[in-house]
Design a protein around this nucleic acid. Sequence first.
DNA 1: TGAGTGATGGCAATCGATTGCGCAAGAGCC
DNA 2: GGCTCTTGCGCAATCGATTGCCATCACTCA
Lengths: 346, 346
Amino acid sequence: MSSNGAQPASKQARTMAEIADLAGVAESTVSRALAGSRRVSEETRARILSLVEESGYRINARARSLRTQKTRTIEVVIAISESNRQHFSDPFFSQIVASIADALAENGYDLLLSRACPWTDIMGADALASNRADGVIIIGQGRNPEPLARYAETRKNVIVWGADIPGRDYAVVGSDNLLGGQLVGRHLLSQERNRVVFLGDIRHVEIGLRHRGCMMALTSAGAAQDQTLTLSMPFDSASAYQATQSLFRSGAWHDAIFAASDLLAIAAMQALADLNIRVPEDVAVIGYDDIALASYMTPALTTVRQDTAAGGRALVENLLTLIEGGTARDVVLPTELIVRRSCSAK
Amino acid sequence: MSSNGAQPASKQARTMAEIADLAGVAESTVSRALAGSRRVSEETRARILSLVEESGYRINARARSLRTQKTRTIEVVIAISESNRQHFSDPFFSQIVASIADALAENGYDLLLSRACPWTDIMGADALASNRADGVIIIGQGRNPEPLARYAETRKNVIVWGADIPGRDYAVVGSDNLLGGQLVGRHLLSQERNRVVFLGDIRHVEIGLRHRGCMMALTSAGAAQDQTLTLSMPFDSASAYQATQSLFRSGAWHDAIFAASDLLAIAAMQALADLNIRVPEDVAVIGYDDIALASYMTPALTTVRQDTAAGGRALVENLLTLIEGGTARDVVLPTELIVRRSCSAK
DNA sequence: TGAGTGATGGCAATCGATTGCGCAAGAGCC
DNA sequence: GGCTCTTGCGCAATCGATTGCCATCACTCA
């Protein structure tokens, strides 16, 4: 353990009391010096700071948070599906989490990542109740928004990524899923495609809205309802691949697929390719999310962008406002159709 | 706020002392009852448990951890690149984090997600020193493994995902990058492709090994060194796309691309497609990681699988062993070439 | 000279759970 | 009847930082 010269073999201090001893002052003075209180002289503060530096001392966060009743930690819960725990690997979710992480870091907050909903009965799942976090960001309302609504009713610092659904009394940040669906529907019409397959589990609130928006646009233009088909399925690529394959195996009657997420769209495109069905010539494909890889598909994927960067920021800002005693406001992010090759001119 | 009948308007207890009052016992007894100590009678325990249930009481984690000196929290740091903070959205990393999250949850640990290296000077970056975590998992050694090595020297509970490099005294879990590279090299030879482009920043330890393995295989078979080209570049799709495009713009002299990650490979494939260069007929493409989407590319991507599920588990097991006072052992995960269309028979 | 003022800094209570030690009551034994 | 065990539970110290309140000191001003 040949330590280099950078760190003179000085006392290693683990607690404030030790620093106080070294500096010959009281603990309270050290605490104030570190907190930047103006009640300690510059001279004393400098002395303390240099001792802290030398000794590698760090304030014990758990002791501090016990005393201050603040953890400076936010829990982030990925909760969109109760059955399928693979969601975190959906690039859309990791993009959101990444931007939340950045926004939190900027504000000096830690990020506690959870894979279990706090309202399940799993012991210790509720970080808020056990004082491990000051607030919670829930990503997704899931197929059944009831438990979330009940959970949020009794907590104060909860913000949700999702849709504006009735019966909620928590603030929501999200994109306009209905509009997103409409944009897709209109675009399909402009391409003269009206035999559309929708891929996704419409029992999810957000996805249901995307579906409805699209159908509204199609039918309002007089497209026959019965030319569209909805394939309800779990939220994973394998299911999307299989569903697409079995639908198109005997040839393509439909001329477009609208998938509830890019992940599903990509799997669908692969299924079509394997059947030698051309995209977009025979069947156009549109996804949702605009994940980073969407533009690198061949053909590049047409999709509805969800601005995860803005979303993460809005979630965090809202939550911090709430924590500071303010009021959260719902945020609807702009929604934009990104037209790429997979659904452009035939 | 019309509460339903499930929760009779019973006392809300926030602390153990309140539970103790309600039960007519001492705090210590409550604590023991909750901890499952055999020193309280079943009768007392049952009474306490039902009170806890009714009142919705949850042990205050920060008070407990102050007393027990354990946080039951692990910090996970994504640190592969100092300059590029976008890594978390690389599906490979989110897959690893997801599997770490699962393994930690199974063991009752929380996961603190960090985007800043604990050895930077950013205030509060060091969760270990400030007692916010019991251990740290570092994902990636980065281009410069020195700071990590120095950091790990003075800490006890550190586990790293990465490569077996000299000068480290921390335990490492990772796949055999050299072998991975060799598998790729041999496969390329078997396809009679020896004018290979390597895409990636070989200053990253792991990527350097992949590169070296591939080159070893190629040259050992007599392939001329000067037929291979190494394009060093940041770790993002855009760079990969551009590099590939400008290299192949004037036609394809090379007949294969080996990319350091699937993300880069996918971007490269897109660049080739945009130049009307056929994959695999004209140029074969091989990636690394086998992310979930790799098999859904068109053509499906040949790649070297890194078993993120096993990796996450091994990281967590190792770290928990360390925390319990045991010794960590290096783990080299099996490495496997997954041959798909993007590089199979011409 | 004495009261008033401002700048520093210390004392001790506090946050909430854990745990070593001690005590009391009842059981078992000779 | 006296003794030792066992079982069940309470007392109080402890983890480490924060903060309201008080003490001290050096000046200033009247």
